[in-house]
Design a binder for these strands. Structure first.
Lengths: 172, 172
DNA sequence: ATGAGTGCAAAGGCTTTGCATTAGG
DNA sequence: CCTAATGCAAAGCCTTTGCACTCAT
């Protein structure tokens, strides 16, 4: 259907944008497309061009984006298709939707297409940036959460650590 | 700013409701009202009966509530007044609003009227419950966040740790 | 050909706002 | 009395949905 496997092996550990944020590795884009296609096909969904466009756009940015931002960067993508496909891909485990305020939600690729991370959320402009914890601290966080929830009869799926404050651009 | 140090001993470990959740202490309700009034008056806002009702209701529950739930438990409170006063009290630092899904937001008393805590969020029914981390772990979490954000030029205000999974009622 | 996917426009649903009325100082 | 607060209803805004068209299989 589309054979870009061979093509973009280029984008290694370095960032697409260089705007900082991720310290870790992202799989090459071709790998992301492959995973996305697989997850969708598990749910008997096709990997259409609109869906590929969305994955492409999300992969090209290292921060979660709002729908208007997504549309801006995805020429030819209709709003309703974006919403529909984002919902569908969220259910398929390709996309994650973040809701932190009453206005626009933010969308990013699912963690296992990128890497487990947390978020810096600016109280002034609402922008969100990814951040990664030291692996050992992440481990102890994880086990602390596990113990705590087990004791409460809560079946823990995952955690999210959000850091609120003022981004460099907003000063303080 | 306000000297509740001495008071705090009153409402022992026992809860107002007994519905579990909080392990820590909550100031007595009168103290909460006093703090709420002070914070509002700092912003030249009155502590009206609608506002007192809201604080009263939030103090009587140990989990964040949605607006419909708040209205149910607050006889005579109009929807628009609730929204208006919640927004106003949020700005005054009396109330915190939690947005975790596209439907209803959740509201709770600000942390310094209760206690620093985190949230168990059910992926099935959307309910939210409070949970408290061990003090020493909380401290190391705090310092880890501080170091990380400082390095990023981010001015950290506070953190939120959300644990997603399935609550006891929803089984799994 | 046949069903999924798309795009436009309209509808939904939570939240906010306008405006007349009421309460508080 | 005069300003702030309230309540009802209408408007806003993000998101979802209906429906006809297109595209891929």
């Amino acid at each position: 259907m589309y054979e870009n496997e061979a093509v973009r092996t280029v984008s290694g550990p370095g960032d697409h944008e260089g705007r900082g944020g991720h310290d870790g590795y992202r799989p090459p884009i071709a790998e992301m497309h492959r995973i996305a296609r697989d997850r969708l096909s598990e749910q008997d969904q096709r990997y259409t061009s609109a869906r590929r466009t969305i994955v492409e756009t999300l992969a090209g940015i290292d921060s979660p984006v709002t729908l208007p931002e997504l549309l801006e960067r995805s020429p030819g993508l209709a709003q309703s298709s974006a919403y529909r496909n984002l919902a569908l891909m969220e259910q398929a485990g390709v996309v994650r939707r973040l809701v932190h305020s009453a206005d626009h939600a933010h969308y990013e690729l699912a963690e296992d297409l990128t890497e487990h991370h947390h978020h810096l959320i600016c109280l002034s402009c609402g922008s969100i940036r990814d951040i990664t914890l030291a692996a050992d601290f992440e481990r102890s966080l994880d086990s602390a959460c596990g113990e705590l929830t087990a004791a409460e009869g809560f079946d823990l799926a995952h955690h999210a650590l959000d850091l609120y404050g003022y981004c460099a651009a907003c000063g303080r």
